[in-house]
């Protein structure tokens, strides 16, 4: 019960932080408008999916260093297959790419289970493997994403409710909510908290871990797709999503080691980090200072969380 409360407290704290940042934004730039928020949501989209995937891998007690590489595979596959294709074909390609993501994640998970090599090492090796696959599919940036898909993430349905934001929330919820409420969701948290206890309670550890990594792969594929949708082309070299995803997941209250956290916190953390970046740009601060601020926020929050946890354990 206390653990649940603390989780909610973390999410509530993030919501408070987001509100404070929104006020700061309004103060810096009184003319900040819905279009500013629309471009923010569009920039945050690939980060949101990468972070969701990373969070699931951390929740089950592992970590997936190959997230950015899997995104690259998804983005080049989509761009190559959609070049010059009609609407019907491109819908098929979207599902194919999601399937490939699921398969890549499942392969990661199966290798971890079969080889008994630590998660971080297997996914480090797979980072190279998937990057290689992406380069084999497309040697240099190219291809073309179906125009209707590029339009899909632009604009807003309602003012202040950009399409990109809806896509992120719906995309994550459609996968995670049913899983979280099923036996598999419980199993993921159980294996992440204590594999031995989970095993003795009859949880299929190997299956759960493979499933969790497959979900991570699926989210990575979504991230790769949305990345290709926003740039219009496929990019075989992985972007800066790996470290950013770990940072946002941890800032979002997912604890390294597994079993603690959810996906709401990490998604809020992505928004917060992107908003900080936008605010600093609006305040015409040197864009390079942004990286320092992001790093400092992350280190500060994590250290504060660590110290608070030590305090509560002592008392």
């Amino acid at each position: 019960m206390i653990r649940v409360l603390r989780n909610q407290a973390w999410v509530l704290g993030l919501v408070g932080l987001l509100f404070a940042l929104a006020l700061v934004t309004k103060a810096i730039q009184p003319t900040y408008s819905a279009s500013g928020f629309e471009s923010l949501a569009r920039a945050a989209l690939p980060f949101a999916f990468a972070t969701a995937g990373m969070a699931v891998a951390i929740l089950v007690g592992g970590i997936d260093l190959s997230v950015a590489s899997m995104m690259a595979v998804a983005s080049v596959t989509a761009a190559v297959l959609m070049e010059g294709a009609g609407v019907g074909t491109s819908i098929g390609v979207v599902f194919l790419v999601l399937g490939i993501g699921l398969a890549m994640g499942a392969i990661n998970g199966a290798l971890i289970v079969v080889t008994k090599v630590p998660d971080i090492v297997v996914t480090l090796a797979m980072l190279y493997v998937w990057e290689g696959v992406a380069l084999l599919i497309l040697n240099a940036p190219g291809g073309q994403v179906a125009p209707w898909l590029q339009q899909l993430i632009r604009g807003s349905v309602l003012p202040w409710v950009p399409n990109a934001l809806i896509l992120a929330v719906v995309g994550v919820a459609i996968v995670w909510v049913p899983i979280r409420r099923s036996k598999l969701g419980l199993a993921i948290y159980a294996v992440g908290s204590d594999p031995l206890a989970a095993y003795r309670s009859g949880v299929n550890i190997a299956g759960t871990r493979i499933a969790a990594y497959a979900i991570c792969g699926l989210f990575s594929a979504m991230g790769g797709l949305t990345l290709a949708m926003s740039t219009g082309i496929g990019e075989p070299i992985p972007g800066p999503y790996l470290l950013a995803a770990v940072a946002a997941a941890v800032l979002g209250g997912v604890v390294l080691g597994g079993g603690i956290g959810g996906l709401v916190g990490p998604l809020l953390a992505v928004l917060i980090l992107r908003l900080v970046r936008q605010d600093l740009t609006l305040a015409s601060v040197d864009p390079n200072v942004t990286t320092i601020v992001e790093g400092t926020i992350m280190v500060g929050v994590v250290m504060l969380g660590g110290i608070l946890a030590l305090r509560s354990r002592r008392s």
């Binding site: 770990v246 940072a247 390294l256 942004t290 320092i292 992001e294 790093g295 992350m298 030590l310």
Partner: peptide, 24 residues
Amino acid sequence: AFANVHPLIMSLGTGLIGTGCLQV
């Protein structure tokens, strides 16, 4: 040592800060 942060997270964060400082 003092905040019990996982080294992976800690060094990731300081790495980000270091990159930013270098660019400035």
